Simulated scan of single mutants.
Amino acid sequence: MSRGDQLEELASDLSRAAEAARRLGLPTTVYLLSMALVEVREAAAADSDGNDDGAA
């Protein structure tokens, strides 16, 4: 499994977790998961652009 695939899988997991936290009424958890999701999506975009420095 490539790094890009792993990042996409992580993004999917974070998205599902954020939705579950939203349903449970956990706003701080939703916020934290959403911020993590932004970071992972940025890393995935950088990875797909051939930028492998790991910075997001």
Rank of each mutant, 00 (worst) to 15 (best):
M1E: 10
S2A: 05
S2N: 11
S2C: 10
R3W: 12
R3C: 12
R3G: 06
G4V: 15
D5L: 14
D5Y: 10
D5A: 14
D5G: 15
L7M: 06
E8T: 09
E8F: 08
E8N: 12
E9T: 11
L10N: 06
A11F: 02
S12T: 14
D13P: 00
L14W: 02
L14F: 01
L14R: 00
R16L: 15
R16Y: 11
R16D: 15
A17W: 09
A17F: 07
A17M: 10
A17S: 11
A17D: 09
E19G: 01
E19Y: 04
E19T: 08
E19S: 12
A20L: 15
A20V: 10
A21H: 00
R22Q: 11
R22S: 09
R23Y: 03
L24D: 15
L24S: 15
L24C: 08
L24V: 08
G25C: 05
L26R: 10
L26Q: 08
P27L: 01
T28Q: 06
T29D: 09
T29V: 14
T29P: 00
V30F: 00
Y31W: 12
Y31H: 13
Y31I: 04
L32M: 09
L32E: 12
L32Q: 13
L32N: 12
L33S: 01
L33F: 00
L33T: 02
S34H: 08
S34D: 11
S34R: 07
S34M: 02
S34W: 03
M35F: 10
A36M: 11
A36G: 10
L37G: 04
V38M: 06
V38R: 04
E39K: 14
V40M: 01
V40N: 01
R41C: 07
R41I: 07
R41A: 06
E42G: 14
A43D: 12
A43Y: 00
A43G: 09
A44V: 08
A45E: 03
A46E: 13
A46T: 07
A46I: 03
S48I: 06
S48R: 14
S48W: 05
S48G: 07
S48F: 05
S48E: 11
D49R: 14
D49N: 14
D49E: 10
G50A: 03
N51F: 04
D53I: 05
G54L: 01
G54I: 02
G54P: 03
A55G: 07
A55Y: 05
A55M: 01
